[in-house]
Design a protein around this nucleic acid. Structure first.
Length: 213
DNA sequence: CACCAGGCAAGTA
DNA sequence: TACTTGCATGGT
């Protein structure tokens, strides 16, 4: 039964990691920026980019929207794909201006499903980025599926190797209590497990806290 | 040197 | 629908 197995995995990881303090950010908007910048990119490189924006006091939707493409992409260069990502950031900022007058915290009151759809309509925001924003910026009860999650779920027989994003997400939504805090932590646990123990070419390694479940 | 990282969009068949 | 490719820096 998947329900039992997922529960077991969560409990093991909870005991092993405790509270990982995700998502590290000082504001909802910083979460959104981080969610875009971390697309297919190591978080370490994203931190430097966010730090650049902070040091220049530009971590603000209206300010980012009005920057030149050259300036913005230079500031976020360390996060990779900087030309693409500067466009994506601007698209998100335009969305925020239109949606809530750039008062980002207003969106906490929005319904999760409708906000998800709106986010997905922004160019540069796909399912993972949208869900990361929903759960980490706006505390919605949503489980984020990422590359590590896929890898781990596949190796533990919880999802097919090439299951779609929505399929993997459903496995968790249907088999795990829908508390925001736990879904939030669960994703953080899986990413941390992946980073440390489940690299692409290795199989499950000995020290992995959920080995053999 | 090769490979990977907390994806997504656009093009093709 | 299901592939494929471009995007790019920084770490191992």
């Amino acid at each position: 039964m998947k329900k039992q197995k997922i529960r077991k995995i969560y409990d093991k990881l909870d005991k092993y990691f405790g509270d990982l303090g995700w998502w590290p950010a000082d504001s909802a908007f910083e979460v959104i920026v981080g969610a875009v910048l971390t697309q297919n990119t190591a978080w370490k490189n994203v931190e430097k980019a966010i730090e650049q924006l902070k040091q220049n006091k530009l971590l603000d939707p209206k300010k980012i929207e009005s920057l030149s493409d050259a300036r913005l992409s230079r500031l976020i260069r360390s996060s990779g794909y900087h030309r693409v990502k500067s466009e994506r950031l601007k698209a998100v900022c335009r969305f925020l201006e239109k949606e809530c007058g750039s008062r980002v915290n207003k969106l906490k009151k929005a319904g999760a499903a409708s906000l998800r759809e709106k986010l997905l309509s922004v160019k540069g925001i796909g399912p993972e980025t949208a869900d990361s924003i929903l759960v980490y910026a706006f505390s919605k009860p949503v489980f984020v599926v990422d590359a590590y999650t896929r890898r781990i779920f596949s190796r533990h027989g919880l999802a097919g190797k090439d299951a779609s994003y929505d399929e993997v997400q459903s496995v968790v939504h249907e088999n795990f209590p829908m508390a925001h805090r736990k879904l939030n932590q669960f994703h953080a646990f899986l990413v941390e497990t992946g980073k440390r123990f489940c690299k692409r070419k290795k199989g499950l390694c000995k020290e992995c806290p959920i080995k053999g479940l």
